[in-house]
C-alpha cells in the first residue's frame, strides 16, 4: 500500500516518540498575541496548491490520532503531519483546538461526594442479600494464593483469623457442612459394622470374630492421635470392639434378611439425602 506521507519524505525528522512538534515552527496555543505571530509565519509559508488541499484532508483525517498520541501513527507519519501543520494555518488551528479540548477535559476535577453512601449500601446489602456469603462452593484457600511479601503475610494472617474465628469459618473451608459429614460418617460405620459382623462379610474377608475385634481396636488406637474428635472416636471404636460379640448375637437373633433390610433402608436414605443436597446446591448456584 502506498504511503500517503511519502510526499513529505524530505521533511522527515526523527523525534522518537512524537510527543511535541518543534516549538519554533508551530503556532502557539498560549496567547492571542503569539497566535497572531504564528499566523503571520504560517501565512508567509503556506503553499497554495491542490496538492496541499488533498494533503489537508489526509492530515485532518488523522489529527485525532495525532492528539491521542498512543502510537497508532508511526513516528515518520507524525513527522510529516507536523511538517504540514507548520505551513497550513487551517490544519494547525484545528489541531490546536483539539489539543485545547483535550486539555480542558483532562483538567475537569472530580466532583466531591455529597454523602458517604457506604452505610446505606451496607444496610441495603444486609437487608436484601444478607445471607449470600460465604458461598459454600468457594473455599478461601488463602494460604496458597500468589501474594508475596509482607502484605501477603499480613493478608494470610488476617484471612486465617477470619476463617478460624468461628465455627462457620471452619465449616466454610470444606464443601459440606458438619451435619452432612456426621451423617456420612455414621452411614459408613453402619455399613462397615454390618459387613464385618455378618457371616457373609467375615467369610468374604476370611476373618474371625477376634480379628474383627483386633481391627477395631487398631482403628481406635490410630484415631486417638487425631486432635479434637480423635479421643471421642477412639472411645467409640473401643466400645464397638467390645461389643462385636453382642452385635454377632444380635445378627444371629434377628436374622440375615432383617439386617439386609436395614442395610437397604440406609442406602435409600443416603440416596435421597444426596439428591436433596444436590438440588439445594443447584438452587443456590442458580
Amino acid at each position: 500500500m502506498e504511503n500517503r506521507f511519502e510526499k513529505q519524505e524530505e521533511e522527515k525528522q526523527d523525534w522518537g516518540a512524537y510527543v511535541k512538534p518543534p516549538q519554533t515552527s508551530r503556532p502557539s496555543q498560549e496567547s492571542e498575541a503569539s497566535a497572531q505571530s504564528s499566523g503571520e509565519q504560517l501565512q508567509r509559508f503556506e503553499p497554495r496548491s491542490e496538492t496541499s488541499s488533498a494533503l489537508c484532508d489526509i492530515v485532518r483525517e488523522h489529527l485525532h490520532a495525532l492528539v491521542e498520541n498512543d502510537g497508532a501513527i508511526r513516528p515518520e507519519q507524525a513527522a510529516a503531519m507536523f511538517a504540514h501543520l507548520t505551513i497550513c494555518r487551517d490544519c494547525a488551528r484545528e489541531f490546536d483546538e483539539l489539543n485545547r479540548i483535550v486539555s480542558v477535559l483532562n483538567s475537569m476535577p472530580l466532583s466531591p461526594l455529597p454523602h458517604d453512601y457506604s452505610g446505606l449500601i451496607m444496610l441495603r446489602i444486609e437487608r436484601e442479600m444478607g445471607g449470600l456469603y460465604p458461598l459454600m462452593d468457594i473455599p478461601p484457600n488463602l494460604a496458597t494464593s500468589s501474594w508475596t511479601g509482607e502484605a501477603a503475610q499480613q493478608t494470610s494472617q488476617s484471612a486465617t483469623q477470619l476463617n478460624n474465628r468461628s465455627l462457620a469459618g471452619i465449616l466454610s473451608q470444606t464443601a459440606l457442612p458438619l451435619w452432612s459429614r456426621v451423617v456420612m460418617l455414621g452411614a459408613f460405620f453402619a455399613t462397615l459394622l454390618l459387613f464385618l459382623t455378618s457371616a457373609w462379610g467375615r467369610a468374604t474377608l476370611d476373618a474371625t470374630l477376634s480379628t474383627v475385634q483386633d481391627w477395631l481396636h487398631q482403628i481406635a488406637q490410630a484415631t486417638a492421635e487425631i486432635p479434637l474428635l480423635g479421643a471421642i472416636t477412639a472411645e467409640a471404636f473401643n466400645a464397638l470392639s467390645q461389643s462385636v460379640h453382642l452385635l454377632e448375637e444380635t445378627y444371629l437373633h434377628i436374622g440375615a434378611n432383617a439386617m439386609r433390610g436395614v442395610f437397604l433402608d440406609t442406602a435409600i436414605a443416603m440416596g435421597v439425602y444426596f439428591i436433596y443436597q444436590g438440588r439445594q446446591k443447584a438452587k443456590r448456584a442458580g
Binding site: M122, E126, Y133, P134, L135, P140, S158, A159, A168, S172
Partner: peptide, 16 residues
C-alpha cells in the same frame, strides 16, 4: 476474597 468468605467489612472498604 474476604467478602466472598463472608466478611462484610471488606466490602465496605471497597465501597469507601
Amino acid at each position: 476474597r474476604h467478602t466472598l468468605c463472608g466478611d462484610k467489612s471488606a466490602y465496605n472498604t471497597l465501597v469507601l
